[in-house]
Design a protein around this nucleic acid. Structure first.
Lengths: 151, 151
DNA sequence: TTCATTAGGACCAAATGAGTCCTATATAGG
DNA sequence: CCTATATAGGACTCATTTGGTCCTAATGAA
């Protein structure tokens, strides 16, 4: 399903903080203090990022976390899917899922994957670097409407 | 926040069912039976659609619901926002919201709205008609990758 | 050995969500 | 005017999810 929980949001905040000094080893505690996110939550979220190869970790004294990915090549979709699982708009559109409860009666099977694909693409087109230092517009103007809705 | 609950999914199923015979008045009960969605849930969801001007309702005997929008001009974003509220990727990016808890420390304020905009645009580009009878590709090929992820 | 630090769970309380149900209101038809 | 049929709008319940905490094991530097 299409969702983004608070912890994913917090992961971006932590990543943004880490990207201020890439290559540096930072402890969970330090990141918690820098961002204001509760220590235990910060620790939990860092483990997820580590398990998904976005960070490397070193245990023990002088240990901590380091950015393990190239921020200009890592899309925010990667981060989102690390926390939320594969992004689909509905249960039906999840890859590998054959059918949901109402699958036999429902009419809208075939289109969802295309729509999910479009959303996925929008998220894939934004890198971590864009997110933090939004210099290059990774999103082409034609996709972004600055007009009415979120003015 | 970015999310889509089951009830929104079910709303699309109900809408798809109604679109088979636009202009017809259908009762909640009939729609429930046709789709397999529990009657009370169907009723609830129809009320939301009605309140958002996507359907018109007639009370009393011979009453029911009718499609009130042009399916080829109504985007699925309209339906999603009817149920989920304004679509934003994070709390920060919600229009009108000044700041979240971590706002002062967090680095990624300015970019979120653009990203949300891109997702919103992807959803806005698909109409109800596309969804049900997916004839015209409302999503331009460049946005839809058919390749790896949801094969 | 000791202390700092991550790994990986189990655990809990609060919030959220799906689904139900009840009462009020409106309408067609006899 | 009465009755049966529908929607309107909530309140309510139960299960699940989620944010957050905590505990124990493993690891590494000094």
């Amino acid at each position: 399903m299409l969702r983004m929980r608070r912890i994913t949001d917090q992961a971006f905040i932590v990543l943004a903080e880490m990207l201020r000094e890439p290559r540096t080893v930072t402890t969970a505690r330090a990141l918690s203090e820098a961002t204001g996110i509760p220590p235990a939550t910060t620790a939990k979220l860092l483990k997820v990022l580590q398990r998904n190869q976005l960070l490397t970790s070193t245990r023990g004294a002088e240990g901590g976390y380091t950015i393990a990915c190239n921020p200009s090549e890592t899309s925010i979709l990667t981060v989102i899917e690390a926390f939320e699982g594969p992004l689909g708009l509905t249960e039906c559109s999840l890859p590998g899922l054959i059918g949901c409860d109402t699958h036999d009666t429902c009419q809208l099977g075939p289109r969802w994957p295309a729509i999910s694909g479009a959303v996925r693409e929008a998220l894939r087109s934004v890198t971590l670097l864009d997110l933090v230092y939004g210099s290059t517009p990774a999103i082409r103007p034609s996709h972004v409407h600055r007009s009415t809705a979120h003015g």
